[in-house]
Design a protein around this nucleic acid. Structure first.
Length: 504
RNA sequence: GGCGAGUUCGUCUAGUUGGCCUAGGACGUCAGAUUUUCAUUCUGAAGAUCAGGAGUUCGAAUCUCCUACUCGCUACCA
């Protein structure tokens, strides 16, 4: 049977990069095994619903180039794929569990539960709704049947709680961690069905995974503690459980905690694929896309954070990742996100792109500066400066002088390269350069070099002074190539201006 | 507090059946080389006694036990 896997985010805000990796692993697994990858939206918590989050999630995967076969936004035979739209189907399942003795109605109010917790806290204990306490609570286990009926009929608020069999070992077979065993007496009677008529994650995810015929549940490690509950639920329903694989966490670059939005803000890197504006506060969180990352680079980097192909290959296309992927090679320990490595990946991917491919990105950047420019010229610039780009957004910093004459000159560079008499030499060189119409790079270079040699000048000094005139500082690609690209007119203007302004 | 998981260079990791590991690669760092400058690129170096301890064994990063530390979960959130 071909596997069916799902990515099931909650639309409570922008998609965390750890979630993206979870989705990626699901995707790689599905594609490797000729399976189906579907998107399900888990919006059972109406109080945490955030406008635009679902659209954000879909757009993020579009940008990343990860395609769902089925689900929200695509459709399929197992829909609807939004849990809010499946609301009606959960209640019968909850009732079935109560009928079969696997669950019970609980009428305890949030206030009374709070009181119990506080009470326990005062006694330095923790209150747990479980086999040891449930008989002292207000529920269908302690109330007479008629009373339960009456309360239900009267429309009183209630929740359905799972009733663990007492003192049994629950085995969870995890594909990355092996066998995990926990005793039922340590677990609390989790709420399955909420008083607002919605299931909790636990019930909804089991019902949906079963009815959607999910074969493998690949999710974050934070779900491991509730996996025993899920295993028990499958048992209670008499359903075959899917295989589980709990992924290691993505950790912050420094320290040990889980990577959070705050770490991104603090250390200056995005934690979300796309930029996100909070609809309530208006706060903006940066995204990989807007920060100048290439989606291929983000995917490659993420794939290797917690998994590796078992050899030394690090630069891998999506297809190569698919071909090499296997759950067995997923590591158990959490992985720290590294900004340096992310930068390196992105640099590598930019180098793989041609000027034609890169052009649209840079045209947009120029557009924002209100610069419209001949496409061939821009592409030539790209070829010249590409290898110094780590991010798409580095473009302007690295190439601005190709589009705007420098307005000031780096004092450090001037001090080092601009000596007495430099201006006079520049005048001569300027004339030489201008004399080639049309410009002949090789001849111009030969002529200037000859001049430098004939006058016993220092090549580094002279050429760099020209460079400062053109760029504003001592950096940039090969000088005569720049001159050729900028044109003699522009070169002339810049040299003249530099002589005037620096005036030494 | 309870429960669970994890622990190889600063970071990501290789190491799957114990011996070719005097622990390999990548990022980062440092040093050289190339270049008219900067960046790129290239070469090289430093960097882990495999969390610690005990044991099994001729031999352990790899097996067993104990300890420590870190993280996760502990809601009518997912």
């Amino acid at each position: 049977m071909n596997p069916r896997v799902r990515f099931a985010p909650s639309p409570t805000g922008p998609l965390h990069i750890g979630g993206v990796r979870t989705a990626l692993y699901n995707y790689l697994f599905a594609k490797k095994n000729h399976g189906t990858f579907l998107l399900r939206i888990e919006d059972t918590d109406q109080t945490r619903f955030v406008e635009g989050a679902e659209a954000y999630i879909i757009e993020a995967f579009q940008w990343l180039g990860i395609k769902f076969d089925e689900g929200v936004g695509i459709g399929g035979d197992y829909g609807p794929y939004r849990q809010s739209e499946r609301k009606a189907m959960y209640k019968p399942y909850a009732e079935q569990l109560v009928r079969d003795g696997w669950a019970y109605y609980a009428f305890d109010t949030p206030e009374s539960l709070d009181a119990k917790r506080k009470e326990a806290e005062a006694a330095k204990k923790t209150f747990q709704y479980d086999a040891s306490t449930r008989m002292g609570m207000v529920n269908s286990l302690t109330l007479p049947a008629e009373e339960v009926e009456r309360r239900l009929a009267a429309g009183e608020h209630y929740v359905v709680r799972f009733k663990y069999p007492d003192n049994i070992d629950i085995h969870v077979h995890d594909l990355v961690r092996g066998e995990v065993v926990i005793n039922s007496s340590l677990l609390d009677d989790k709420v399955l069905y909420k008083s607002d008529g919605m299931p909790t994650y636990h019930l909804a995810n089991i019902v949906d995974d079963h009815t959607m015929e999910i074969t493998h549940v690949i999710r974050g490690e934070e779900w491991l503690p509730s996996a025993p509950l899920h295993v028990m639920l499958y048992k209670a329903f008499g359903w075959e459980a899917p295989q589980f694989a709990h992924l290691p966490l993505l950790l912050k670059p420094d320290g040990n905690g889980k990577l959070s939005k705050r770490d991104g803000d603090r250390l200056g890197f995005p934690v979300f694929p796309l930029q996100w504006t909070d609809p309530k506060s208006g706060d903006i969180s940066s995204g990989y896309r807007e920060s100048g990352y290439l989606p291929e680079a983000v995917i490659n980097m993420l794939a290797l954070l917690g998994w590796n192909p078992g050899n030394d290959q690090e630069l891998m296309s999506l297809q190569e990742l698919i071909d090499a992927f296997s759950i067995e090679k997923i590591s158990k320990a959490g992985a720290k996100f590294s900004l340096d490595k992310a930068k390196w990946f992105n640099h590598e991917y930019i180098q793989m792109k041609s000027a034609d491919e890169l052009y649209p990105y840079f045209e947009k950047i120029l557009g924002k500066k209100h610069i419209s420019c001949n496409a061939d010229y821009v592409k030539n610039v790209i070829d010249l400066i590409k290898d110094r780009l780590n991010f798409i957004n580095d473009f302007w910093e690295q190439a601005c002088y190709f589009f705007e004459a420098p307005t000031e000159y780096d004092p450090q560079a001037l001090k080092k390269r601009w000596k007495e008499g430099t201006g006079a030499h520049l005048k001569v060189i300027d004339d030489m350069l201008m004399s080639f119409q049309p410009f002949d790079k090789q001849k111009a270079q030969d002529t200037v070099m000859q001049y430098i040699q004939d006058n016993g000048l220092n090549m580094g000094q002279i050429l760099n002074s020209v460079r400062i005139a053109l760029v504003g500082t001592a950096r940039g690609p090969e000088l005569f190539t720049m001159i050729e690209l900028m044109g003699t007119e522009e070169t002339h203007r810049r040299i003249q201006r530099a002589i005037e302004v620096v005036n030494l």
